[in-house]
């Protein structure tokens, strides 16, 4: 096996992992703090991708498109929290799942009405297109490196905010005892709205960065959402550290599995058997991984403190 190929696929895995982390961070924060299961988190991913594409095409500036896309997703997230989800915090998980499932139908259809059902392909500005030569013989797309850098920077920033700032202290306090924090005079409702909005914006960031790599279309959020569920189940629901570990594990396993399971099987099995079993096994890999983790640690790798 070619070492460069392995390295390239590992970088792809890192890039996917970083994307998954951006999604998982918001989802796991909202669950850890508000005890809310939000299926519509994938919708913010889609909203971010559509808005950024729209503003980029309207203004002609990629950076402006990205900024407006992020601000727009934040606004949509805050609006959804205020209108629909605020009443759901005290309700059973079942109600939350169903209500947010209803929201998904709504958002997907709205996107289809506004921008059509067909997939939209987006382009990159010249300064982000192109390749970088990492080593002699290994050229890697600049844009994917940018994604990795942005994702790691956001992870660092998130750690700093949660662990080192007053806001982060309030967030952690709100997670462990809501009533006590409210009694100390903190506006918990506002805090929740803020956390939800920023979680949505992180999902939007992941969505708008994925736009030029994949395609932008209605329903794009749900495919990644289910992978994100695998991430936070593996990492431990409610834990940001777990979300990061889970995201990197799932990103790597999925990417390397798709690239190397078939050729590895081909060395043991016949070629046709490998061609049949390889893709099937690769597509099931992260779910099998989840099953193994759960069999050993039902609360995930980094259980959040109750």
């Amino acid at each position: 096996m070619n070492l460069f190929l392995v390295l390239e696929q590992a970088l792809n895995g890192l890039q996917l992992g970083v994307m998954l982390f951006l999604m998982a961070a918001g989802l796991t924060l909202v669950f850890g703090i508000m005890n809310l299961v939000n299926l519509a988190h994938g919708s913010f991913y889609m909203v971010g991708a559509y808005l950024a594409t729209y503003f980029y095409q309207a203004t002609g500036s990629y950076l402006l498109g990205v900024s407006l896309g992020l601000a727009g997703t934040l606004a949509v997230g805050v609006a959804v929290e205020l209108v629909a989800l605020r009443t759901l915090y005290e309700r059973p998980h079942l109600d939350q799942v169903l209500a947010t499932f209803g929201l998904i139908l709504f958002f997907n259809e709205l996107a289809a009405i506004l921008w059509g059902r067909a997939a939209i392909y987006t382009t990159l500005p010249d300064y982000l297109a192109g390749h970088v030569e990492l080593f002699a013989g290994l050229r890697y797309p600049l844009y994917r490196l940018v994604i990795i850098a942005v994702g790691l920077a956001v992870a660092g920033l998130l750690w700093f905010v949660v662990a080192r700032t007053r806001l982060g202290m309030l967030i952690r306090a709100g997670a462990s005892n809501r009533a006590m924090v409210a009694a100390l005079g903190v506006n918990v409702r506002l805090l929740y709205t803020l956390v939800f909005g920023f979680g949505a914006a992180l999902a939007g960031l992941a969505g708008l960065m994925s736009g030029p790599i994949h395609v932008v279309q209605p329903g794009m959020g749900e495919l990644i959402l289910i992978e994100v569920f695998v991430v936070i189940v593996i990492g431990g629901i409610g834990s940001i550290r777990g979300a990061l570990a889970g995201a990197l594990i799932v990103g790597m396993a999925d990417t390397l599995g798709r690239a190397f399971v078939r050729p590895m099987l081909a060395t043991v099995l016949s070629r046709t058997a490998a061609d049949t079993a390889g893709p099937a096994l690769a597509s099931m890999l992260i779910y099998l991984l989840m099953a193994i983790v759960l069999a050993l640690k039902p609360q995930g790798l980094f259980p959040a403190r109750a």
Partner: peptide, 17 residues
Amino acid sequence: RTSGVYFIMITLAFTQM
């Protein structure tokens, strides 16, 4: 073996598999 929100996500993930 799990419960609550884990159960929801795991059953969903296995079906997706």
